[in-house]
């Protein structure tokens, strides 16, 4: 790495990161285009960092290491800055997740209406702890702060869908919608 860094014409930093990990990562043309489009909304390319991470995550479910460096290049900021943003926000995943992510609201509105029972039922049904993914890669279980539907709690989100008034008794009907 020390020799490659001294040359400004050869391998870019991002490619080194990607190959060091043994998993070459490249942004697709569409991803690159989408990120460049997002940059135009703001005064400064850095502002598109969260958009860029979300664009990658939409296609890969998570943000692989190589993407961090490529996004940094595209936005002309350091990879450390992109990583700092990626690790700050709880909806950016820096580890692989399952095909569907279950976000369970654990804030007070849902706590008052049965969160504990729902969370326990989810963990026993899926046989995982919060933060884990089922062995068939189907679900990842995560807690999330108030989803803004306290009048219809307990609430959870699976992928882009919000499910209201979820309880251990109707949980199966909710989960079976996700293969």
């Amino acid at each position: 790495m020390s020799t490659a860094n001294s040359s400004n014409s050869s391998t870019p930093y991002s490619a080194l990161i990607a190959t060091e990990k043994g998993a070459p990562f490249a942004l697709t043309e569409a991803e690159r285009h989408e990120i460049e489009h997002a940059i135009h909304h703001y005064e400064d390319p850095r502002a598109a960092s969260i958009d860029a991470l979300k664009i990658v995550q939409k296609n890969h479910r998570w943000v692989p290491d190589g993407a961090i460096a490529l996004i940094a290049e595209l936005l002309d900021i350091s990879a450390a800055d992109v990583e700092g943003v990626a690790t700050f926000y709880n909806r950016i995943y820096r580890q692989p997740v399952g095909r569907h992510v279950i976000l369970v609201c654990d804030s007070i509105g849902c706590f008052l209406t049965g969160f504990d029972e729902l969370y326990a039922a989810l963990q026993s049904k899926l046989a995982i702890q919060p933060g884990q993914t089922t062995s068939d890669d189907r679900f990842t279980l995560l807690p999330i702060c108030c989803l803004g539907a306290c009048d219809r709690g307990p609430v959870l989100m699976i992928d882009d869908n919000t499910h209201f008034n979820v309880s251990p008794s109707n949980l199966d009907q909710v989960l079976e919608q996700y293969a």
Partner: peptide
Amino acid sequence: DEMEPGTFKDR
């Protein structure tokens, strides 16, 4: 960015 627990008006 409505996230105050108990709040669902802006949604």
